[in-house]
Nucleic acid binder design. Structure first.
Lengths: 105, 105
DNA sequence: TCAGCTGTTTAGTATATACTAAACAGCTGA
DNA sequence: TCAGCTGTTTAGTATATACTAAACAGCTGA
């Protein structure tokens, strides 16, 4: 049984960490997709964004920077955007970024 | 007479460029200070943030990513946050980031 | 005129980042 | 049981980044 890693304490996550994490197009895409789904999603839905080994590192980055939590169940991994917690620590930030997602290119 | 460089066309600036530029603590500090002053500022007020050669590169980064305009006059350079234009292209983004500036560390 | 000022550019370095390929770990249906 | 699946980790690479020191450009007051 694969252990679920504990969530990062958001009180230790800085604004610049969040901005840097989301300044990568693939990570921004993942987070935006999770936001729009507004529920836990299997990693499988992101496979069109790149190689699995690369995506896995982006999941790790997002987890370590407090943006997502990761749950392992059976063969799959499931990602959840930590939206409520992020809104609590960084009010309006996530929404403002995602609302401007259409200018990502 | 030193030429003033033309401003970057904000329509060509992407969301990820903005986020990456502001993910650096020094640049975030400069932009926040310009926001709070809400007027053109001499570079001199940022000299406590680091070496001049390094700061100059950060000014360049901010200019190339559409965040500031730079005016040269006599011996000094003056920086202006392109707030209205940024708000037009990226609604609410700048404010949301600066409002969370206290969590930069 | 020119010493001394502000800010920029250049060259160089150390570190971080994004990516790939390959090996790997863990799970599950046949 | 085990082949084949999903996703992770490791090793390696190419590029980007942040920084410094030193040279430089342009301006100006004495």
């Amino acid at each position: 049984m694969k252990e679920n890693l504990p969530n990062i304490d958001l009180n230790k996550v800085t604004l610049t960490q969040i901005l840097k994490s989301l300044s990568d197009p693939i990570r921004l895409e993942i987070v935006t997709k999770l936001f729009k789904e507004s529920k836990e999603c299997s990693c499988a839905i992101f496979n069109d964004l790149g190689k699995k080994s690369n995506l896995s590192q982006h999941y790790r980055n997002l987890r370590l920077n407090g943006l997502i939590s990761v749950r392992h169940s059976g063969i799959h991994s499931y990602l959840t955007l930590r939206q409520a917690e992020l809104d609590h620590r960084f009010p309006n930030l996530l929404k403002a970024i995602i609302d401007n997602w259409h200018h990502r290119f």
